[in-house]
Structure formats: C-alpha cells, structure tokens
Simulated assay, not measured.
Amino acid sequence: MTNLLKRLHEFSFARFLASGAFNTLATYALYLMLLNIINYKASYTITYIFGIFLSYFLNRHFVFKSTTGSRSILLYPLVYLAQYLASMGILWLWIDHLHFNEKVAPLIAVIITIPLTYLLSKAIFTKK
C-alpha cells in the first residue's frame, strides 16, 4: 500500500486531485456556512475567491512543485476566471432552470470543470 501511495504521489494529476479534494472540502464548508446569511451567487463568489488563493498555494508547492514565481502569480487568476465562468454557467442552469439543489450544484460544477482546470494550471506551472 505504501508503494502504491508513493507511486501516485509521483504523478502530478494524482496530486492535483488530492489537493483539489482538500480545497473543495474547505471551500464547500465555507459555502454552506455563507448560504445561511447570503444568497448562492454571493456565497459562491466569496468562496471561489478564497479557493483561488488556497489552490494557488497547493498547486505551486505541492502539485507542480513550481518555481515559476511572478509569471504564475499573474497568470493563475486567468485559470480560475475560466473555471468560474464555466461553473457559474453550470450553477445558473442547474439551479435556476433545472431547479436542482443549490447545496449540491457547486460540487457537480467542480467535477465537470476538473479537466479544464488541470490543463490550464499545468500550462502555467510547468516550464516550457
């Protein structure tokens, strides 16, 4: 089992999924707390901004072990702008038009946008 975990750790996509799971749990908990006091759009936006900072730290230091410095700081928000727009579209469709539960919709949006986020993050954090 230890050997398997060690091998998984060598793959950036496995580290990306692990850090993403941690980030998702942390931001989802914040989202649910904020839903008690503000609407889903504001809750999602605040949580999303917090998640960008957490994700940047995890991706730079744990997933890609990058030393790209200021280049990544400047480009990384563009990854999450793309993911935010895609996710907000999914939330809007699923909550306002399909009447799905607003507590579950962000989790579905994260799952759907994983490939987009990984590929854009990898492009930013890996040296060419």
Score class of each variant (00 low, 15 high):
residue 30 L to K: 11
residue 19 S to Q: 07
residue 63 V to E: 03
residue 104 V to A: 07
residue 110 V to E: 10
residue 35 L to C: 09
residue 64 F to Q: 00
residue 26 A to V: 15
residue 106 P to D: 07
residue 108 I to D: 08
residue 70 S to E: 02
residue 71 R to M: 04
residue 59 N to L: 02
residue 117 T to F: 05
residue 2 T to P: 00
residue 93 L to Y: 10
residue 30 L to A: 08
residue 76 Y to Q: 00
residue 16 F to C: 08
residue 85 L to F: 06
residue 6 K to W: 09
residue 60 R to C: 13
residue 95 I to Q: 04
residue 110 V to R: 07
residue 19 S to N: 07
residue 71 R to H: 12
residue 109 A to C: 05
residue 9 H to E: 15
residue 19 S to M: 14
residue 118 Y to Q: 03
residue 9 H to L: 10
residue 21 A to S: 14
residue 66 S to A: 08
residue 111 I to R: 09
residue 4 L to Q: 12
residue 119 L to H: 11
residue 11 F to V: 02
residue 1 M to S: 15
residue 42 A to K: 10
residue 53 F to K: 07
residue 6 K to V: 14
residue 97 H to G: 01
residue 100 F to W: 13
residue 25 L to H: 01
residue 82 A to V: 14
residue 51 G to K: 00
residue 60 R to H: 08
residue 48 Y to V: 09
residue 86 A to W: 06
residue 63 V to H: 00
residue 61 H to I: 00
residue 126 T to R: 03
residue 98 L to C: 04
residue 46 I to M: 09
residue 28 Y to T: 12
residue 124 I to D: 01
residue 34 L to A: 05
residue 82 A to F: 05
residue 116 L to C: 04
residue 94 W to C: 08
residue 119 L to P: 03
residue 108 I to M: 10
residue 41 K to N: 10
residue 9 H to T: 12
residue 99 H to V: 01
residue 121 S to K: 02
residue 46 I to L: 12
residue 88 M to A: 05
residue 70 S to D: 09
residue 118 Y to I: 07
residue 52 I to M: 05
residue 112 I to N: 12
residue 1 M to W: 15
residue 114 I to F: 11
residue 68 T to I: 14
residue 46 I to S: 08
residue 12 S to C: 02
residue 4 L to A: 13
residue 9 H to C: 04
residue 49 I to S: 06
residue 67 T to Y: 02
residue 44 Y to H: 14
residue 68 T to C: 06
residue 40 Y to T: 10
residue 34 L to K: 04
residue 96 D to E: 15
residue 41 K to Y: 14
residue 71 R to N: 02
residue 110 V to M: 11
residue 52 I to Q: 02
residue 109 A to K: 03
residue 67 T to V: 13
residue 32 L to C: 14
residue 97 H to S: 05
residue 104 V to I: 13
residue 36 N to G: 13
residue 10 E to F: 01
